[in-house]
Design a protein around this nucleic acid. Structure first.
Length: 559
RNA sequence: UGUCCGAUGGUGUAAUUGGCAACACAUCUGAUUUUGGUUCAGAAGAGUCCAGGUUCGAGCCCUGGUCGGACAACCA
């Protein structure tokens, strides 16, 4: 029998939607959209919005559009469009129909602008940007009307058409909505609708030299697409009256999209603004947008995060209206949880020290069977070569171990995972006193699976020296040392960059089965952590990225 | 001297007629374990920003404060 699933409580947006459905608002339909500006790569904060918007559509059997908010040709590029398409798809979501573009609506928007002019609700201003800012007032002080505010509709129309035809330089003239220069809401003080921009647009080319502003575009785009629930982040809250005001000017039907705002995601030890991320990329402080230390979707992908882990994360953080800072540990937990079920376990020794089994026959090789994932029997097993000389992790041996150290030490025994129990007989050092190799003996009666019942405290991972393959390993740590690098007024966020956020290992040794792995494959290096194959890997040089280390209750106590 | 929004363990989110403040992460124990992983069992941690009010009963309703955030780009 199926246990009734525990009813998960609704977030405030779901509650609103369910109420709309009960009230038959929008005929009970749910139509959302994810509207990025193609001016940068998507990050984990966008993932929250993507999961929210597409998730809501799935949950309520509605639809969700992907719409590029591409009204500013100055910052937007095709490269970003491509990456956004890829990232949304990779996260596992599919938009309704073709991707949409606000620029597809430029003709309609222009028509609406003319309509507003004719109604006497928009005018051409000739003040400079500085002058406009000055007469706009301040949050606590009313603004003043522009001297150009009372032009006739005919003159405004003529000038607007001339703007469109390219008769004016950038900044010379703009189109403003005529609302209320003394509104307590700054956004209602005659907001700019269109500006002159002699820039080529990544989609419309040189067709236009005037471009609509966000506020004059977004609500109408929602309206054109039939969006019912327009969900955005909190900073647009004060734009909502304007969103509604523009719709009021054109809407003749009962249908009207509504804007709802939620708190954007903030995460500890990273920055989440496109401007700052762009800065890191441009100043080459990271390798690129997809640097595994970046909070971008492409960075997380390259780091080894799975789409499912990001969706689960998004689920866990919830949706609300208060400012929040999510502990990066929750993101890491989400990926460990997913990879624990999925990632095959393999043997990898990152910092090797050689062990010689003095009583093991020279030249002999055994094939040792080992299970691929104890969490999932269906993942089967594989064999590992075992021979007289093997590598173990350097920190799995201590000459003078502390209490409760269960690993190898002089005279002590440990099990080699899936193989034999060995005992450390002798420590070989070089002239500098550094440990070179360990001479051990093995107990042939203790082979795994042979029915041996002898127990030892520690089990170590290992790799047969003669069969080992080499690869580069990149270990990542948080990009910033400060919990809130972007939140300091007086200090640049880059001052908090962690100089040790990347460590490259070149001497690591791996079991031979790893020679067939492909980029982005997830693995668990036994006892170490989850790793994935970096796309930098070539036929003769593998590169692994550490996604996240395994929980280490011993290491934590013995720092 | 404005408008809008918010305030619940360390963090995030719940508490849906006003009825024992719950879940997850993080932290700490213990058990199991051929991964010091996983799993399991358990502990600790908030009395809900403050002051009043309504009520048998308030995190929730009312009033007044306090604190925090957003808003003055020809950005989105």
């Amino acid at each position: 029998m199926n246990e009734p699933k525990e009813e998960k409580s609704l977030n405030f947006i779901e509650s609103m939607i369910e109420e709309d459905i009960r009230n038959k608002k929008h005929n009970g339909d749910v139509y959302t959209r994810f509207p990025p500006e193609p001016n940068g790569y998507l990050h984990i904060g966008h993932a929250k919005s993507i999961c929210l918007n597409f998730g809501l559509a799935q949950k309520y059997k509605g639809k969700c559009n992907l719409r590029f908010d591409d009204t500013n040709p100055e910052k937007e590029e095709e490269e970003y469009v491509k990456s956004i398409l890829e990232d949304v798809k990779w996260l596992g979501f599919d938009w309704e129909g073709e991707p949409k573009y606000a620029s597809d609506y430029f003709d309609q928007l222009y028509e609406w602008a003319e309509k507003l002019i004719k109604k006497g609700k928009a005018y051409i201003d000739e003040l400079s940007a500085d002058e406009i800012a000055k007469q706009k007032g301040s949050p606590t002080q009313a603004g003043q009307n522009s001297p150009f505010r009372e032009r006739s509709a005919e003159e405004n129309l003529k000038l607007f058409r001339e703007m469109k035809e390219g008769k004016y330089k950038e900044g010379e003239k703009i189109l403003r909505a005529k609302i209320d220069m003394s509104s307590p809401n700054m956004h209602m003080r005659d907001p700019i609708m269109y500006r002159v921009l002699h820039k080529s647009h990544h989609r419309t080319g040189d067709k236009w030299c005037i471009y609509p502003m966000y506020d004059f575009t977004h609500g109408q785009s929602d309206y054109i697409e039939g969006i019912t629930h327009s969900i955005c982040t909190l900073e647009f809250e004060v734009h909502r009256p304007l969103y509604d005001w523009f719709l009021d000017q054109f809407i003749e039907t009962n249908y009207r999209p509504g804007q709802t705002e939620f708190a954007r995601l903030n995460m500890s030890y990273t920055v989440m603004s496109k401007r700052k991320l762009l800065e890191l990329v441009e100043e080459k402080l990271v390798i690129g947008w997809d640097d595994p230390r970046m909070p971008t979707i492409s960075g997380l992908r390259r780091r080894g995060y799975t789409p499912e882990s990001i969706r689960n994360f998004s689920d866990k953080i919830g949706v609300a209206k208060r400012d929040n800072v999510i502990d990066v540990a929750l993101l890491e937990h989400s990926v460990k949880e997913d990879l624990n079920k999925k990632a095959p376990r393999v043997m990898a020794v990152l910092d090797p020290i050689k062990v010689i089994l003095k009583n093991y026959p020279e030249g002999k090789t055994e094939e040792i069977e080992t299970i691929n994932n104890p969490e999932d029997e269906s993942m089967g097993s594989r064999t590992l070569p075992f021979s007289r000389e093997i590598y173990i992790e350097r920190n799995d041996f201590m000459e003078d171990p502390p209490n409760k150290y269960f690993r190898l030490a002089p005279g002590r025994e440990v099990r080699l995972k899936s193989a034999y129990i060995i005992k450390c007989e002798e420590v070989i050092k070089n002239e500098k006193g550094e440990i070179e190799e360990l001479i051990c003996s093995y107990d042939p009666e203790t082979r795994s699976g042979s029915g041996s019942t002898r127990k030892v405290k520690g089990t170590l991972h290992w790799v047969s020296a003669a069969h080992a393959i080499n690869a580069e390993v990149r270990l990542y740590d948080r990009l910033f040392n400060d919990e809130d690098p972007g939140g300091k007024k007086e200090q640049d966020f880059k001052d908090f960059l962690n100089p040790d956020s990347l460590e490259i290992l070149t001497g690591a040794k791996f079991e031979p089965s790893l020679n067939t792995v492909k980029p982005f494959e997830n693995l668990q290096f036994q006892r170490l952590g989850y790793f994935c194959v970096d796309p930098d890997s070539t036929e003769d040089k593998l590169v692994f990225n550490r996604t996240v280390p395994l929980r280490d209750t011993w290491g934590k106590r013995h720092k």
